[in-house]
């Protein structure tokens, strides 16, 4: 008899009893302990999942696969043998180029760059666009744009500061802020897959909108050690005032004991 759920059909009787039936018995009639007669479905239960996460986008994949199909396709596109970009890739690439051009124009306008600076900057942007193209294929759809924009401002900022060009920055605080946040974005780049992957998965797959870390942090701030963090510590959000302060999230469905 095999075990592990891979070759069995699941059948739940109306009385609530659950049976696993060998797959070859699909279609036969059975009788529950409660006396109800049922027909065993012909289709086998879903094979037991042996899965892991795709290292690129965190989607669930079979354990034997290296990455998910989407990521594999993206990586395939990086090869010279297959350079045909689908519409969505063209769209991203055009946005990347436009962004780069906007940043370039903005920088020239502000800084009155001389010719050397201009070509240096232009070279940087070419590199940037190339990198953006790679990122388009290697990492996910949405996060690529964040990276391209962030890199754009980093490059502009680096060139300007290296040539002591501060004119314009004083007038354009927004640009300066973007440079700062761009730096932060770059610093977060190694984790962006986790951050965005989690957010996307929650919003797209399940609409999970949990308490934020800060909200739970607030709840737990009342803890003062094991005597107040008993096993039932985190689960009371109820009408009777369980849990000091309660969960402050409007989206939290609360917890159970």
């Amino acid at each position: 008899m095999s075990v592990g759920g891979s070759t069995r059909i699941k059948k739940i009787c109306t009385c609530g009893k659950k049976y696993l039936v060998r797959a070859e018995l699909g279609g036969k009639r059975g009788k529950c302990k409660c006396g109800s007669v049922f027909t065993v479905p012909k289709h086998a239960a879903k094979p037991a999942a042996r899965t892991k996460k795709c290292p690129w986008c965190s989607v669930k994949i079979e354990i034997s696969r290296v990455s998910c199909q989407d990521c594999e396709r993206r990586k395939m596109r990086t090869s010279l043998a297959n350079r045909t970009l689908p519409a969505v890739e063209w769209k991203i690439a055009s946005i990347a180029v436009t962004t780069a051009m906007l940043v370039l124009v903005c920088a020239i306008w502000q800084s009155y760059l001389n010719e050397t600076h201009f070509f240096l900057l232009y070279g940087c942007f070419l590199a940037l666009c190339f990198l953006g193209g790679i990122l388009t294929r290697v990492i996910g759809f949405t996060r690529k744009l964040v990276m391209v924009i962030a890199l754009g401002f980093i490059v502009v900022g680096a060139v300007r500061y290296s040539h002591d060009v501060t004119l314009g920055i004083q007038q354009f605080h927004g640009l300066r802020l973007m440079m700062v946040f761009g730096t932060i974005a770059i610093a977060l780049a190694p984790f962006i897959d986790v951050l965005l992957g989690g957010i996307e998965k929650r919003s797209e797959e399940s609409h999970l909108s949990n308490c934020s870390a800060a909200e739970w942090g607030n709840i737990r701030s009342g803890y003062s050690g094991p005597s107040i963090t008993p096993g039932y510590g985190s689960h009371y959000v109820g009408t009777s005032g369980f849990m000091a302060g309660g969960c402050t999230s409007s989206s939290c469905g609360g917890c159970a004991g």
């Binding site: 008899m1 069995r8 739940i12 609530g16 009893k17 659950k18 049976y19 696993l20 039936v21 060998r22 018995l25 059975g30 302990k33 797959e205 399940s206 609409h207 999970l208 909108s209 949990n210 989206s251 939290c252 469905g253 609360g254 917890c255 159970a256």
Partner: peptide
């Protein structure tokens, strides 16, 4: 009789954020 194996139902504690799923 061996063909039919009774096992417990397996389920979740319902939480509102999981409602759609």
């Amino acid at each position: 009789a061996d063909a039919l194996l009774e096992i417990p139902l397996v389920g979740l504690g319902f939480r509102e954020p999981l409602a759609d799923w």
